[in-house]
Design a protein around this nucleic acid. Structure first.
Lengths: 362, 362
DNA sequence: CGCGTTGACAGGCACGTTTCTGCAAGGCCA
DNA sequence: TGGCCTTGCAGAAACGTGCCTGTCAACGCG
């Protein structure tokens, strides 16, 4: 009857196993497992009794054993691109934080947890964690980690359409080209004659698509492109590039900055050159930061909706993990949102507390 | 000789097990395990041969099986406080992102990976992941999750000294009281006569310590406290609180804001009331954001050094995991850093490109 | 030549689950 | 009353490692 009394020789005293619960409840291991997992056919009395005994012993099933047996770990990798030896870059802070936050919530709601795994992780770390699938943020062209994960048969969903022929299970992205064209039209509508671009020297898809959309728009409307590119992972280089852009002989009268800090970079550069915003210079930048609602003047921003992207990526991944695999990759496009503020409007709206002034037409 | 040919019946074709490697190399399972893990006594020829065969078969040891056998998963929990149903709050974005980034790097360098686990996670998620230890960010007074982890014997290291009697293994924190006193002295040195505080309504340790240090400082120098408290997790409430603070009859001539967006909040409120910074109002806020280097004017910020905190927390945790447990909690204090900029200096330094003006003394 | 020693491997158990199979008891129907 | 289905549970086989124990040959030494 009681072969396994309390615990066997090597067991940690703090951890009760399923055997201990079975012995304490006077039932078999199978009955305990079925009672706790809601399986099998047991009368409610037995089920309740087993649950009660398990609670009393503080029983927690071993995640490792369960993973080994079922093949599911409940863990999702969150792979972030690395710049140098840092997991993510300064300019992506707000985007990444919001995206990770939403992804964490979405995963949690379906019983999964997120593991942060930089793309340049040592190989032993990657193989040391049992993943059910992976989210990849902006995968580079021939990421060895991603291709190996795919080769192992793990579902991979990427934030940003995969570069090259990376065979991901699904991807979620904005329509970056449409967003850029929309902003350029918005600036032109506000009276801009020569629109400049602050862009990056990196080769990621976002930078590439946005820049080429800008170049095509310039060609379409017959404007010479005016842009400065800088290494976006350098927190200081943006201010220098903004300065360079406004110092050019063909100084633009409107600028769109692709990265989060470009708004303050451009505002500072405009002040240095005595340019008024928005009278002399229209400014828009791509940012998720809330500071641009309170700058002087408030800056129009493009939001890539990282919350929706993070949620969508995780949903698609878990669908792929739990359901049967789709035969072809699922693609999902998340609309962007433009928060129009003073910096891109020719006639700034009156601020709340400022004293009344004579109306000025331009 | 070849009992286990390629794989047994149920095995996934993509995944080669240690048995397959042993069979392909013509050795036993023990020899494969020893050869790959650098244990046992094997001639180099055998070791190399086994490694080569394992590589050829694309063998990856099962993380779940290894965890089950060794009791170590190589996973560290990163527990973040939750506001509502969101893992972390808006005002902590930059701090959390930097801290998580540093923690991820530090963990990775020692072969560990981080799992994001909000404090309000469903219980099944917590017990479903095998953790070797946990980092807790600013643990609340009687966090049920933390106390249960401690009861299970898992090492727990907290960012922020634990409130109440939470028995953590170690903690890392800044000297928040000294930092606040330092800032207040700095503002007083710059000429401030009445220093206000923008603080939070939450009960976390950071807010509590900082506010009480402010109140004690006021008592010491004989100034009436002037402060406004607001729910820091609300992204809009900060601007309103800053406005309230400057609308008071006993309007302060200097303000320290405890949270990241307070700098722009205060700048915007100052503009609304026609106050010049720093001539009429000195501003300092606690922030890790780089935008304050380029605002108008640049804002003095206090950095809590989240990179150093994240690194230290992970180092202490892994030390506790791998070494023997210390008998008493290890405490580590990280110094803060004050980046003095124009907003807290009575005589602002000349900006680079601005036209020369007549020197003005005040 | 017997014997202890050492190198080089093989066998097999244990980690803690999940789950397939099986078995006894009882009710139902022909 | 016997065969069959249902109920309530137990036994035991995996899952894939790590590691402890054991075997066998070679070898030096008295």
């Amino acid at each position: 009857m009681s072969r396994a009394e309390t615990s066997r020789r090597g067991s940690r005293p703090g951890r009760a196993g399923i055997r201990d619960v079975a012995a304490a409840a006077g039932v078999s291991i199978t009955t305990v497992s079925d009672a706790l997992n809601g399986k099998g056919r047991l009368p409610d009395a037995t089920r309740r009794h087993v649950r009660e005994v398990a609670d009393r012993l503080g029983y927690r099933p071993s995640a490792a054993a369960r993973t080994l047996r079922t093949g599911k770990s409940g863990l999702i990798g969150l792979t972030v691109t690395t710049y140098g030896d840092e997991p993510f870059t300064f300019t992506e802070f707000a985007y990444f934080a919001e995206m990770a936050r939403a992804a964490t919530s979405a995963a949690l709601a379906r019983g999964y947890a997120l593991v942060i795994l930089p793309a340049t992780s040592r190989h032993d770390v990657w193989s040391n964690v049992a993943l059910d699938g992976t989210v990849v943020i902006d995968p580079s062209d021939q990421d060895p980690v991603v291709s190996e994960l795919v080769r192992q048969g793990l579902p991979v969903v990427s934030d940003g359409r995969p570069a090259g022929t990376l065979p991901v299970t699904a991807w979620v992205d904005n329509d970056h080209e449409a967003a850029v064209l929309d902003i350029l039209d918005h600036l032109a509508d506000a009276g801009a004659r020569r629109i400049g671009l602050l862009t990056g020297t990196t080769t990621d898809t976002y930078t590439h698509l946005s820049t080429s959309a800008y170049l095509r728009w310039c060609e379409r409307v017959g404007q010479d492109p005016v842009y400065e590119a800088y290494p976006a992972h350098d927190p200081c280089a943006g201010a220098v590039a903004a300065d360079r852009l406004l110092a050019r002989p063909d100084r633009p009268d409107a600028v769109y900055g692709l990265f989060d800090p470009n708004g303050t970079d451009l505002l500072a550069a405009a002040r240095r050159y005595g340019l008024r915003v928005p009278e002399d210079l229209l400014i828009v930048c791509c940012s998720e930061s809330t500071v641009y609602a309170n700058t002087e003047p408030p800056v129009t921003t493009l939001s890539l909706k990282p919350r929706r992207i993070g949620t969508a990526v995780v949903q698609l991944l878990i669908d792929a993990i739990e359901g049967e695999e789709a035969d072809r990759p699922v693609e999902q496009v998340i609309p962007t949102e433009l928060f129009v503020r003073t910096s891109s409007q020719r006639r700034p709206p009156r601020t709340t507390v400022s004293p009344p002034r004579a109306p000025e037409e331009k």
